[in-house]
Amino acid sequence: MAEQVGGLTYTILDADKMTAAEIYGDVLTQIGGQRPEIVALSADLAKSTKIGKFGEKYPDRFFNVGIAEQNMFGVAAGLALAGFVPFVSTFAVFVSMRAGEQVRTDICYQKLNCKIIATHSGISFGQAGTTHHCTEDLAIIRSFANMTVIAPADGFETAKAVQASVDWKGPVYIRIGRGFEPRVYTDDKFDFTIGKAREMRPGTDVTVIACGTPLVGAVDAADFLKKNDGLSVRVINMHTIKPIDREAIEKAVMDTRRIITFEDHNVIGGLGSAVAEVIADLGKGCAFKRVGIPDEFSPVGYPDDLYHHYKLDSEGIIDTVREVMGKEFEEDEDWQDEF
């Protein structure tokens, strides 16, 4: 019996065979059937980003502007101004930097209903090298007022994010990988609410907060550490980077007093920074570590090797959790009384 994803008609079996990008291409095509106001744009990457699926089904509502990303976002703004809902897809590096100003000024400034699917984010396009890696987009894009920023963990969550974004007022940036990343969810029986983090594993000793591709390693690491080290590791899927779920972070500080973030992004400005901002605002002591790309340009390599290199796979996450748990952390009986 085929299970449906988000009420749509592709199956778990499909999800196993399909990349996150393919799933989103399918989802968008199906939503497009119900919503005539949806249009799609590509900059000669319709095949790579899978938005071409929409174009095959609805050629009148699909515009390939060629290799011209700045123009693409300006055109999307024009379409959105008249009430259409453009889904625009290209590689994250070109959204956030090549056309960053167009995204900011033409779309965010006007709070236009434009949805951006930024593919090949982080180091997911490993062998393509630094020019096609994008470890800066969260820092850049989340600083644009009016923008909502989502980093789904797998194809299921991408499908949910795409659906949720359709009726979300204003611009949305959905950051996915190349699409060959393993699944975190086994089915679509989970709630996805923009701005509401999901607890993937309960825990009381330490909280791991991750988004995007590293989430699968975080979940595996928590299971491993529970079994082998007797550690209770809370795993939070912070799929929405902005608006960030402050409550989930504050609760983690109070409950576990140790937080580690994992992200496929420079440690400057991304998930780790966003979490740190909340912790600092809270004013409560908390052991804290950010793991990501340590402010350097990432080298060429196969994605799995790169995730391992940057300790973003389960092995690296296990090491980091053990390291943080092994450090002395001064307990303070009066901690709850501090302001």
């Binding site: 024009g78 101004l81 259409f84």
Partner: peptide, 17 residues
């Protein structure tokens, strides 16, 4: 430099509608 791109998007909406 932005205006003409936005004009293209607007003109496409006129065509679609």
């Amino acid at each position: 430099g932005h205006g003409l791109s936005v004009a293209v998007g607007m003109a496409l909406t006129a065509r679609l509608d």
